[in-house]
Amino acid sequence: MQQLLAPIEQFLACSTPDSWIEKAKQPQNLTTLLIDHCNCELKAAQTAMFLVRKYAVDKASAEQLLLWAKPYEDFVYKKERDIERFLNRDVKKNDLIGELTCRTDFAQGQDLVNKMVRLIKEEFHHFEQVLAIMHSRGIDYENRRAGRYAKGMMKQVRTYEPAALIDKLIVGAFIEARSCERFAKLAPHLDDELNRFYVSLLRSEARHYQDYLALASDIAQDDISARVADFAATEAALISSEDSDFQFHSGAPIA
């Protein structure tokens, strides 16, 4: 595990505050944590899908991606909340049926599609896993709005292309890296089921951060270290400073 986490700890400019871990491990906060985690998994899949649809594929393929996401979005936004039916639907529930056609005007389109489709599939699966754990514990799903962390990171994204895409990919890398770091720190303080589950997520989250960063570097075709350092400083400030809300990516709880 330490070998897996070492690059992430080097990438992030700060560690999760001990005060956040102390609050997160309290039994009365577990419901909030699981609901927000479930939301985060869906948002991660949606973000990756947006990047593929906007930048990499033709119109027909973009529509195909929306069909893939439809059961998840119906569950969340249309509130079709029959969990048993949702979790036990067709065996191909988490597969993108057919191939996507990349646009010809984006050189890195196929690489972005390959990396993001795998990420989407894994995040949808993680969403279902968290949802199943919640269901077994009598916790109902709730929609959650983006918190200070996500908004603070996205404020730094440039508004012109390809800089906007590069920045969005860097933001994705930090979100995935922070998730991985928090899973590792929190797992020892949770019950056996959640401990095993969070540890099982580490490898995929670590790869997601690497995929995002590799894509950003390839698309920039230049050194992105200065831009990564800017986002690292922003991310560390959001994580280290006091936060009135408690979420999976929130900052230090107000004393």
Rank of each mutant, 00 (worst) to 15 (best):
D90K: 09
E99F: 05
S250D: 05
E235G: 04
Q108G: 01
P7W: 08
H189T: 03
I239K: 08
K54L: 10
I224Q: 12
L215T: 03
D243P: 00
H135W: 04
R207Q: 15
D18I: 01
P162N: 13
A163V: 01
L34A: 13
A45C: 14
G251P: 00
M134A: 02
K185P: 00
T234L: 13
A206C: 10
E41H: 06
L119D: 11
L119W: 05
R118K: 15
M49P: 00
S15K: 11
R207M: 09
N143I: 09
F183G: 00
I224T: 14
S225K: 15
F106I: 08
A226W: 05
S200D: 13
E63V: 12
H37Y: 10
A69G: 08
D105L: 06
V228M: 09
I254C: 11
H125G: 09
W68C: 04
Y209Q: 04
Y160K: 15
V117S: 06
Y198D: 04
L34V: 05
Q10Y: 03
A48Y: 14
I35L: 10
I224S: 13
Y160G: 06
K59S: 12
A229R: 13
A44Q: 06
A184H: 09
M116R: 14
A44E: 04
R145D: 07
I219M: 08
L65H: 07
Y149C: 05
L4M: 10
T234D: 05
C38V: 03
Y77M: 11
S250H: 04
M1Y: 08
Q156E: 14
D95E: 14
A132V: 04
P162C: 10
F106S: 06
L238R: 13
T47R: 15
D90C: 01
K23P: 00
A226F: 09
A220D: 09
Q26M: 10
A150I: 11
P27F: 00
Q221W: 03
D245N: 14
D245P: 00
R103C: 04
F248W: 15
P71A: 03
G251C: 08
K59N: 09
R207N: 12
M116I: 03
R89E: 12
C14Y: 01
Y212V: 02
Q10G: 02
E99Q: 11
M49Q: 12
M1T: 14
A56F: 01
K78C: 02
F124I: 13
A233T: 15
Y198N: 14
Q110L: 10
P188E: 12
A187M: 01
A214D: 12
T104F: 02
A132W: 03
G172Y: 10
A6M: 04
P188W: 09
K78H: 06
H135E: 11
Q129K: 13
A216P: 02
A236W: 00
E84H: 07
Q210Y: 03
F50A: 12
P253L: 15
L67C: 08
D223A: 13
A62M: 07
D192L: 13
T16Q: 03
A220S: 14
C180F: 00
A187F: 02
A107F: 01
D58E: 15
S136G: 07
R227M: 07
K155E: 14
Q108F: 05
Y141S: 09
C14I: 12
E73Y: 10
H37G: 07
A132I: 04
R137E: 02
N195I: 07
S241W: 02
D95L: 09
L213K: 13
N94L: 11
S240G: 07
N39I: 07
T32A: 15
R203G: 08
N195S: 10
S136Q: 14
